Simulated scan of single mutants.
Amino acid sequence: MEDQKQCTVVRTGQYEGIQGGLFGAGISAQSAGATGLCLHRLVMPAGTRGRPHLHEGHESAVFIQSGRVDVWHGEGLAEHVVLHAGDYLYIPADTPHMPVNNGTEDMVCLVARTDPDEQEGVRLLDLPAWLEAQVSPLPVGAG
């Protein structure tokens, strides 16, 4: 008889990502045995930012549930977009990016990646000097 796969319910816990932000631990290889995706809820408090990073070999998709967030992305983080509640963002594999919450309320989003491991494919990058003066002084969790 073929091995029957089962659905898995995950009661969210929390962890701080190495790239910054407080993640609600959702679906991953670690929590549910996922083999091709990862889905988490991210809360980024007002006045904070993530660290510049990329996800090696894996795509990401983001849905903004509430708040707003500036995302610097691309080579040298030279590109900029502002996302609002209801917006989606696709991030190709290996694309540098950094979220910044300059708003007055927490930003809450859902983040999906093709990497089933919660933090394995995250590679931190240096913050370009030209951008340092324009963004919040400390990443989430750096203080």
Rank of each mutant, 00 (worst) to 15 (best):
E118I: 05
C109I: 04
E120L: 15
R113A: 05
Q119V: 11
M107I: 02
V111Y: 02
L124F: 02
C109M: 15
P96K: 01
V111Q: 07
C109P: 04
E118R: 04
P99N: 07
P92D: 00
D115R: 11
D106T: 02
P92V: 02
Q119R: 10
D106Y: 03
D94M: 03
V111D: 12
R113W: 04
V122M: 11
M98I: 04
E118F: 10
M98D: 04
V122S: 12
L124W: 01
D106K: 04
E120P: 10
A93M: 02
D106N: 14
P99G: 07
D94S: 08
R123P: 04
T104M: 12
T104L: 13
L110F: 14
G121P: 08
P116A: 00
E118P: 01
E120M: 12
N102F: 11
T104H: 13
L124D: 03
T95W: 01
M98A: 07
P96I: 04
R113I: 03
Q119M: 12
C109E: 11
V111L: 13
P116F: 01
G121Y: 02
P116V: 00
D117R: 15
L124I: 09
G121L: 01
R113C: 06
P92T: 01
P99H: 07
M98L: 13
L110P: 01
N101P: 03
V100R: 00
M107P: 00
E105S: 15
N101Y: 13
C109R: 05
R123F: 03
A112V: 14
L110W: 07
L110E: 03
G121H: 09
D106W: 02
D117M: 10
P99M: 04
E118Q: 10
N102L: 11
Q119E: 13
